[in-house]
Computed example of a mutant assay.
Amino acid sequence: MWCDGTPGGLSTFGAAIVSYTADGRIAGQRPVSYPSDSEPQYVCGSPRDLSQQQVRQLFNKDFTLLAGIVRAANGQGRQATALDLESGQVVGPRPDPDAFGVAPRHSSPVFQSGTDLLWYQDQDRRIWSRDARATQAPAPERGRSAGNGFMLEGSTVWTPLSWSMLSASAEAIAPGGAIAAVFDEVWGLHLVRNGQEDTDTPKLGPSRYGDKNLPGSDRVPDGCSPRFWSGPTVLVCANARALVRVTFAADHGSVTRVESLLPENDRDNSEAVLAADGRTAYFVSRAGSGPPALYRLALDTPNAVPAKVVDLSGPANARSAQLHLLATQ
């Protein structure tokens, strides 16, 4: 998915979802522009370094809706909503500028995996959900967030209380929901548990600032942000040069193995996702000022060399287009 401002102005967003076959041929394209009062969550406008899980939860079950925010016409209020990826129109209710009371100030809209249920947080950190296409009131309160956002594992709200979660950009919950990996630019990569109040969460990688690191994790490189879990105890993280597989003990109390999955390189690599087969990763790589390209990597082949699939071309009107890999099928 490419996202950029459109000729209508910097506050107007447009996107193009492009699908490719396994051999690099374009299978389909869906360009769309969004109303000027809307903001697609995270993938446009104010991008964040997101894990595969976070990116997938921005879309509903069949990639027809994108989680977002719509602003009130009078500037008073922000409503969690969904944006139609065919028409670009806002789906569901908008803020009512004539309503007497406190205007909604929603944030962190995401979809529950495999559904059209839109979850979001209000100004009092209460968490709600509703069918994205419905106009009725949301279901009863689903929980409360400890801070500026929450994660979702199925229908379970994940809201650790540790500082690493509250300031994190990339977050990924392990299959089964026992633990999550969270990344912050200053404090690095940490493991947290749901509801955890301990601020001394273990770091993966060399110890800095006197923080405690997880035993066996010294070889995890700096800036390694979680991309995906390939199993309950196997995390893949990445920075611009490396894609690293980290294997934990069954209780996640130590690291038993750290493997570099890419040959030494001087490229800018990003956006790694796990394929549906569980044995293949795809990622975006750029050499110097060249175009970004999609690469395939066999995870179950020792010393595998990434294979280029296709160069990725942005929309014709792109000025500073943001690129995200969404999923594989």
Score class of each variant (00 low, 15 high):
Met1Thr: 06
Asp4Ala: 07
Gly9His: 13
Leu10Asp: 12
Thr12Ala: 14
Thr12Asp: 12
Ala15Asp: 08
Ala16Tyr: 00
Ile17Asp: 05
Arg25His: 09
Ile26Asn: 05
Gly28Met: 04
Pro31Gln: 07
Ser33Arg: 08
Asp37Ala: 06
Glu39His: 13
Pro40Asn: 03
Cys44Arg: 00
Pro47Thr: 10
Pro47Glu: 12
Arg48Glu: 10
Arg48Ile: 09
Ser51Arg: 00
Val55Phe: 04
Thr64Cys: 01
Gly68His: 09
Arg71Asn: 14
Ala72Asn: 11
Ala72Met: 01
Gly77Met: 03
Arg78Tyr: 13
Ala80Phe: 05
Ala80Met: 08
Leu85Tyr: 02
Gly88Asp: 04
Asp98Tyr: 04
Ala103Tyr: 02
Pro109Phe: 03
Thr115His: 07
Asp116Met: 03
Trp119Pro: 02
Gln123Met: 04
Arg125Met: 10
Arg126Pro: 01
Trp128Asn: 05
Ser129Phe: 11
Asp131Glu: 13
Ala139Gln: 12
Arg142His: 04
Ser145Leu: 02
Ala146Pro: 06
Gly147Asp: 10
Glu153Ile: 02
Thr156Asn: 10
Val157Arg: 09
Thr159His: 07
Ser167Ile: 15
Ala168Glu: 12
Ala170Glu: 12
Ala174Cys: 14
Gly176Ser: 09
Ala178His: 10
Phe183Glu: 03
Asp184Val: 02
Val186Lys: 14
Leu191Phe: 10
Arg193Phe: 10
Asn194Asp: 15
Gly195Trp: 09
Gly195Val: 08
Glu197Cys: 02
Asp198Lys: 02
Pro206Gly: 08
Pro206Ala: 13
Tyr209Trp: 14
Arg219Asn: 14
Phe228Cys: 08
Phe228Arg: 03
Gly231Met: 01
Pro232Phe: 05
Asn239Pro: 00
Arg241Val: 06
Leu243Asn: 06
His252Pro: 01
Ser254Asp: 11
Val255Gly: 09
Thr256His: 05
Arg257Thr: 14
Ser260Ala: 14
Asp266Arg: 14
Glu271Ile: 07
Glu271Arg: 13
Ala272Arg: 01
Ala276Leu: 12
Gly278Ala: 11
Arg279Cys: 03
Arg279Asn: 09
Arg279Asp: 07
Ala281Asp: 04
Val284Lys: 02
Val284Ile: 15
Arg286Ile: 13
Ser289Leu: 15
Ser289Val: 13
Pro291Glu: 07
Pro292His: 01
Leu294Trp: 05
Asp300Phe: 10
Lys308Arg: 15
Val309Ile: 15
Val310Met: 12
Pro315Thr: 05
Pro315Cys: 10
Ser320Gln: 14
Leu323Tyr: 04
